[in-house]
């Protein structure tokens, strides 16, 4: 029990310190790294509670993929400059937010600590956490029997999210990202159209560039 207490205190301190870092650091890169600390702390707490598979998923998906996505966007957009802390859109909103957060915490603590019985449900009869079987087996069995519809809908949700992300972040070929690097007439799509115009002018056919071909070229340029 003493070891468990030690693990809980250390990883809990890491969690809280990381959470405070996410909120209080001014630089978004520091925020992202603090988030990694919190995610690792939560992963350790998962291990302490026997959710080994979830701990691995937590580290791989959250710390490995999501935070890296955050860092990519931060560095891609160059938004790693500091927030302007002095500017308050609504006067006193920070103090109000802190009061709301503390009262939220207070209400949760009152609800948790007021009675010795936090859990009011009945222990599971169908999917017990039997320590004999690995938790991967238990999660898999539950996921593909009881929760199969939720699983399928999750797959649809991921597909929609990916398509939506691609649609949102796709750059329209008319608007260059960097006008210094790509002044007028040097975009790949415009070059392709110009090349086609010259080749068409060379040939006998004077129909002009096929609009469909130009569109395809523009699409190819935009996806790069």
């Amino acid at each position: 029990m003493r070891v468990e207490m030690f693990v809980f205190v250390v990883s809990g301190a890491i969690c809280v310190a990381g959470a405070l870092g996410v909120v209080l650091f001014r630089n978004p890169v520091h925020n992202a790294l603090s988030l990694v600390a919190t995610l690792f702390g939560v992963a350790v707490l998962f291990v302490a509670q026997g959710a080994y598979f979830l701990a691995a998923i937590q580290v791989i998906v959250y710390a490995g993929a999501i935070v890296v996505l955050f860092l990519f966007v931060i560095m891609l957009l160059g938004v790693d400059q500091d927030d302007d802390v002095r500017f308050e859109p609504i006067p006193g909103i920070r103090i109000a937010a802190v009061i709301v957060g503390i009262s939220l915490l207070g209400m949760s603590l009152i609800a948790l600590l007021s009675s010795p019985d936090v859990v009011t449900g009945a222990p599971s009869a169908l999917a017990p956490l039997d320590p004999a079987t690995p938790d991967v087996n238990r999660i898999g069995a539950a996921l593909f029997t009881d929760y199969i519809y939720a699983f399928e809908i999750t797959a649809v949700l991921l597909t929609i999210a990916v398509v939506g992300a691609v649609m949102l972040s796709r750059q329209s070929p008319e608007v260059p990202l960097d006008t210094e690097e790509f002044p007028d007439g040097t975009m790949a799509s415009e070059l392709a159209i110009r090349r086609e115009e010259t080749s068409v002018a060379d040939s006998v056919d004077t129909d002009g560039p096929e609009p469909a071909d130009a569109e395809i070229a523009a699409d190819a340029a935009g996806s790069e």
């Binding site: 709301v100 957060g101 915490l105």
Partner: peptide, 21 residues
């Protein structure tokens, strides 16, 4: 209790910070 603490910190930060990231 620890989860409630992290949740409260996150909720406060969501209101305080202005950077969408």
């Amino acid at each position: 209790v620890l989860a409630a603490l992290i949740f409260a910190i996150g909720a406060t930060g969501l209101v305080i910070r202005r950077n969408p990231l």
